[in-house]
Write a protein that binds this DNA or RNA. Structure first.
Lengths: 167, 167
DNA sequence: CTGTAATCATTCGGGCTCGCACGATAGGGT
DNA sequence: ACCCTATCGTGCGAGCCCGAATGATTACAG
């Protein structure tokens, strides 16, 4: 499977901007998350982007809504869903109420692949070297850094409570 | 300049993997860093990748070495340097000792653009909402999480001491 | 009921990133 | 000298990602 390692990921390793050493550590941490996700995706025969879509399709969604869940723009959703549809993991159904919209939903095989993905995601998850107390501290610090600075904490990266347990 | 907002960035917003809420916060934090860098790049007429190259070219480097600094693979360096060379910000000189290698160095205009970039990077840097103590704690926690888990701290994202002050 | 504005998905063009496969050169061993 | 291997940069193909523009449809105003 050649471990495709994420496709078009982070293109930037910016400056310190007055934070000696902090920036690289943050990038290293997210790189770990990306690597784990990409490896899990590859293990189930998907690219990261495709896995992201499959992961978010527990419930069906329109293209727009799926884009929101995946944190990317509509044209990209069209692209990824095209690939998944070719593979038969997903299909586009017309939405009864609205003839513009299309509803994307997993096929039977898609659900199977999603289950395999979730299973693989659960093994050896990254950032296990932290105690619960450390995790809490880390969360607090990151939240503080974010909303003291730009917007109200995240906004862009939908934290939406903690509704992101491994399911 | 349309605020190109980074080009081919993060394509993945992975799972919680047992860390309720931590993962999204990490992604949100690096998203801030990316946004700040991309905005600074755009302000100086560059894309993020191009700015990354210019930033790393304080000292000349071969393509390979530049790739290491930019944290990307050689074909990508070729691509980015091509664009920069077309713009006249960079030139490829033959390396005296080795006829395979090429040395990439900033032109005069390249140095000017780099100076402008550094200047722009210094205004309103992200993650300012943290005290020095918080910063230290955050650094400690991230380092611990990283080397308890995968490799020896970073390795991939070259922290190389703290030699990354705004210069 | 008709015209205008908003929304949906897509297409198009362009930039970023990688793996693989070259051709060219360098270096080590024989 | 000679070959065998490693390294350097690059071309190619493919995938990811976005902003702008487009055609279809819906929603709203008058």
């Amino acid at each position: 499977m050649t471990e495709r390692e994420t496709g078009g990921r982070r293109g930037v390793v910016p400056q310190g901007a007055g934070l000696p050493g902090l920036t690289p550590l943050l990038y290293a941490a997210t790189a770990r998350l990306d690597a784990h996700f990409a490896a899990s995706a590859a293990a189930t025969g998907l690219t990261s982007a495709q896995a992201n879509a499959v992961y978010e399709l527990a419930e069906p969604a329109g293209m727009r809504e799926l884009g929101r869940r995946m944190c990317c723009e509509p044209p990209n959703v069209t692209f990824v869903v095209d690939r998944l549809e070719e593979r038969g993991l997903v299909r586009r159904a017309p939405l009864p109420g609205d003839r513009r919209a299309k509803q994307v939903l997993l096929t039977e095989e898609g659900h199977a692949v999603r289950a395999a993905l979730l299973e693989r995601l659960a093994v050896e998850p990254p950032l296990r070297g932290l105690s619960d107390a450390d995790r809490r501290t880390l969360r607090t610090l990151l939240a503080r850094a974010l909303d003291a600075d730009g917007g109200p904490a995240e906004a862009a990266y939908a934290v939406t409570s903690d509704a992101r347990q491994p399911e």
